[in-house]
Nucleic acid binder design. Sequence first.
DNA 1: AATTTCATAGCAATCTTGTATCAAAATCAT
DNA 2: ATGATTTTGATACAAGATTGCTATGAAATT
Lengths: 141, 141
Amino acid sequence: MKLSRAQCQTILETHHVKVTEPRLAVLEFMGTQTGPIKAYDIIHGLTVNPPTVYRALTSLTEAGILHRIESLNAYMFCLHPGHDHAHGHDHEIFFTICDQCGQVDEIDHDLKTNLTSVLKARNFKPKRRIFEIHGACENCF
Amino acid sequence: MKLSRAQCQTILETHHVKVTEPRLAVLEFMGTQTGPIKAYDIIHGLTVNPPTVYRALTSLTEAGILHRIESLNAYMFCLHPGHDHAHGHDHEIFFTICDQCGQVDEIDHDLKTNLTSVLKARNFKPKRRIFEIHGACENCF
DNA sequence: AATTTCATAGCAATCTTGTATCAAAATCAT
DNA sequence: ATGATTTTGATACAAGATTGCTATGAAATT
């Protein structure tokens, strides 16, 4: 999915992220790879220091340009850039992760429909599910 | 929730896990703590080597005695020990994680009911959701 | 134009988390 | 008992992430 510098810049601008060299470099690097990418792939690939990469990844993720896959310690391009990924809606983003080939898919799931049937329709055989919701509990809200 | 050696042994036996010293020690240590526990808390608490603890945690988790919380890199006792946590059923285990006080709750969620309403009923205010499903994709099944 | 402010960047060090390796011991099934 | 398998133990190391501090550069304030 090779991205030019100009394309990277456009991505940043449309997501209202300040355009900086590390962010451009990380975005560009990610465009050369396919599937989930680890922070240290970038650190080694670009020979930059860890904080530089982690800061870029954080801002790109917060902007919704990337997703962080917690169970892989890895990052992916968001495939549903138009959507609001915040909570409180009638849909939810799921990731399916093939443990064999490593492919990660992003599913925009309508909460009213049955997840099992969605997975079946995609011929994805689930083995392990990770459903974790961060927020504020009753006492701390 | 203090667990005696005998109780730890019973837990292992009822889950068909071989009873070994490291597993007993880790279980017992976890019984002295409350909430999610990190591997290095155990490593430091028991002054044992990392591989010993990670191996014990892996077997305890695989047996369904513990859960691993991916977004915290931490482990918790399973609060629904009677249930089948495998997939393909009409319920799903969710974790709610309070970012303020650190409390983690395990929700056994009936997939037919609306998750948002369940959270609302518990007065949990969600901020960030992590839904990741590992398995085998169409091509690799 | 000069100054303050604030987010970002660079660098080094450090901390946290998790694995690889390989040999010794324990366990189990003939 | 003997051989195969599993589990352990110890050392080392790799991978993942953060902290502290200084410096820079753009934007806001005077």
